[in-house]
């Protein structure tokens, strides 16, 4: 068994209005950041998982996303796995 460090990035799905992102975008614009195109705010979750392989660590992480971490109706996610 190896310990794996898993990074989970959760975002609102495209098309779901991200009100926090919008508010931050307005704020940054008012501070003069004219080049700013868009802001999206999401969540970043780190998991430390014991597993035999990277693939197994990834599968477990995805299951955790489905079970609790992510609401599939409004959110999408991606997973990165790193060996310890």
């Amino acid at each position: 068994m190896t310990a794996w460090h898993v990074h989970v990035y959760i975002q609102l799905k495209d098309g779901v209005l991200d009100t926090q992102g919008k508010a931050v975008e307005r704020s940054l614009h008012s501070l003069g950041h004219d080049s700013l195109q868009a802001v999206k705010i999401g969540k970043y979750v780190q998991l430390w998982i014991n597993a035999d392989s990277e693939q197994s660590a990834r599968q477990q992480a995805v299951r955790m996303c489905d079970d609790l971490l992510v609401n599939g109706i409004i959110e999408q996610f991606s997973v990165e796995v790193e060996g310890e």
Partner: peptide, 17 residues
């Protein structure tokens, strides 16, 4: 209830957050 899927949809941060 929406998280259990007994009811459809989801409740997001207010329009003015």
């Amino acid at each position: 209830l929406t998280e259990t899927r007994l009811l459809p949809g989801a409740l997001l941060t207010n329009r003015i957050p």
